[in-house]
Amino acid sequence: MSFEYIGITVLWLFLYGYLIVASIDFGAGFFAYYAKLTKQDHIINQLISRYLSPVWEVTNVFFVFFFVGLIGFFPDTAYYYGQTLLIPGSIAIVLIAIRGSFYAFENYGSKHSMLYMFLYGGTGLLIPASLSTAMTISEGGFIEETGNGVHLLYGELLTSPYSWSVVVLAVVSVLYISATFLTYYAARADDEPALQLIKKYALFWSSPTIIASLTTFIAMSQHNREHFQNMIELWWVFGLSVGFFMIALFLVYYGKYYGWAFISVMFQFFFAFFGYGASHLPYILKPYITISDGLTSEPMAIALIIAFIAGFCLLVPSLFLLMRMFLFDADYVKGKK
């Protein structure tokens, strides 16, 4: 495999990782707030906070890793995305900042402040919406390069059906992924009332997810025919994704193998995400950056890959330890520790 494929695969894996862990986190914040609003917080909030407390910082690092890695492997992205995303990027930063800090404020300081919960519950849905802009503009047609730099065409972006369908897809996916994970977590904790409530959320958010995916497909066919054609050629990947969606839905409905249900959801998104990514190539940002001529120099690419392997060897055991302590330690999950 050449450097550009190694690079983009690593980055895409981390973005996928972020997609999963951040969705769980964002959705959980929203559900906690929603439960509080509907006075059901006594049922699930304890559970949510047991999961979230030890891992929220790790979630953020996934994101940092992705954008730092992207600039490292493909430095041109700093220039094009940097010039164009000043406003959406700054809004995303502000939302992430509010969410992260008010999560800590609420959790370690002012227990159960309604305002703080609103801040981190609400921002949890707005962050994916604003981050999805970066994905949308990569399809081309939203940027112009003139004599004095590169600019984002706000009018096009805000009136494009494609960009709105991506926003909707991002938001509903967050809620769906999060709800299936929390269903599993509640089942592990033997917390029957929480399980019943969250399971309802999971079932509820499944159909919007699949509808939004289809809508995005259709919008893509209008916006970027070439990419759409590539996706059609990879039809089997998206077929697998739909297959896993069915399995997950069935398992949650059937109500026994929640762990497998969540794994199916992970596969569902894995295939959809990699299908999307693979069909997007060779462009990173159409038509300005492709993976081959956007790649950093060879010595840097080698250095980054070595750094990545070394870092990975350090992280995997550490992450494993964390999961054993908090995710798979039945006593902790049940609240006995």
Binding site: E57, V58, G69, I71, F73, T296, L304, A307, L315
Partner: peptide
Amino acid sequence: SLPLFLETFAFFFEA
């Protein structure tokens, strides 16, 4: 970008 990239591993480890 090498140290910037390595820094994210340090963050990971710390977090």
